[in-house]
Design a protein around this nucleic acid. Sequence first.
DNA 1: TTCTAGACATTGGATGTCCCATCTCCTGTA
DNA 2: TACAGGAGATGGGACATCCAATGTCTAGAA
Lengths: 243, 243
Amino acid sequence: MAIASQEVSPARFSAQLRSHALQTRIMDLILDRGLDVGDALPTESELSAELGVGRNTVRESLKVLQALGVIEIRHGFGMFVAPNNFSALVSGLTFRGRLSLRHKGEEAMELIDVRQALESGLIGSAIDLLTDEHLADLRVTMEAMENAAKKGEPLYEHDAEFHRRLYAPLNNDLLINLMDVFWQVYRKIHLALGTGPVNLEQQTQDHWDIFEAVANKDKALASERLQRHFDGIRLKLKDVAAA
Amino acid sequence: MAIASQEVSPARFSAQLRSHALQTRIMDLILDRGLDVGDALPTESELSAELGVGRNTVRESLKVLQALGVIEIRHGFGMFVAPNNFSALVSGLTFRGRLSLRHKGEEAMELIDVRQALESGLIGSAIDLLTDEHLADLRVTMEAMENAAKKGEPLYEHDAEFHRRLYAPLNNDLLINLMDVFWQVYRKIHLALGTGPVNLEQQTQDHWDIFEAVANKDKALASERLQRHFDGIRLKLKDVAAA
DNA sequence: TTCTAGACATTGGATGTCCCATCTCCTGTA
DNA sequence: TACAGGAGATGGGACATCCAATGTCTAGAA
């Protein structure tokens, strides 16, 4: 079989393009059939037959699509169109970050720059759309963070939750996902470097300050305090990297 | 062979985790050996032997790493640590965008929001670091855009180049890559929708306006004009999606 | 010295086989 | 009747092996 003859089979196209083309064909198949998030894809064997390529080849593309967050593979059950989620990017970006830290750690700094720009740039819009409910959620998160700090527990999750909820009013999944990715990458790099001494109280106070500005709907102050928050993170990262 | 017995072989771990673990092992191998961008990885067979898994299995993970931009695979030659590049993300994000357009196109709008926040948020820092050389590059790009517009050619590439150069002073590869990804995704979605009527002159003038503000180092004005630029894009996208 | 053809190493792809994870449904029991 | 447990079907996971395709490098000829 292998009816690859259908296409002109340019043979000059680099293999990389062929591989990429297969991924595209599968994505097109999903779109053409009107499959939506949660819907099941054909089985590997069916895809292999329909696309005229071996099952291993199909599997390689499917794994890539899984890594790209396009589909979700459930062993023994089937494959499904995945909900939006960028967790896949974490691996790649983390690798980049760790690779760069061997040199000068510049790329890790770039990541902070992007986070800073995104967050301080969007805080104004977020405040515009902020409701009392959102604010209540934020306060709950802050209280949880404070409790954790008193117990000497790491604040990773609460910190992430705070930033996630801060931008929830924007109702922008892409943004939330991106920020989550950056956050996780930063955390992994930080852990890989070995955490320096952390001042839990200072960290909590920083967030309370931001919270206060947001609660008062003071856009300029909130933006400024976010800027400083990231400046602090940047300095800390520089210290750790130097050690 | 298949000396998987080395590890406890938990067998209870979901397959997804095992797959992810293999990718991580390969990345760790790269980092442990001190391989740098451009260096060659062991061959597929060697990896298969070293990691104690079949070549097909290794290949699946390698394809994923390629898709994540971690490695570069050259048919018939070998595999190498890839330079930083996020082009892989384009596929996944484009798929998301097209999927969302079947509904209300919200996710495409989210993409514009993120671009707007990034660009208008960072233009200030970019202007701070702007040199005459950067400015000259920008002017060249603008002149090329104007020429293309006069000939009625599409401005896609010049548009992308303009934004790329606008933030070149920041020397932040992550940012440039991200913006490139967003831009390409936007373009693909736009093409998939069928381009509506485009006003080349207006588009060029928008960019000249931004250029002027940047050349005058007027941060506030540049930021505002960038905001309006994206507002225009957003409106246009809404029109096309509605049609 | 320069160009070309072929050997070689390495990845690309196909097929078959077996294993094992998950779900479904049916049966037996309370 | 309702619930629990297990058998079977479905379908992905892993592997071995073959051959094809391709980029590199080298040896030989002009």
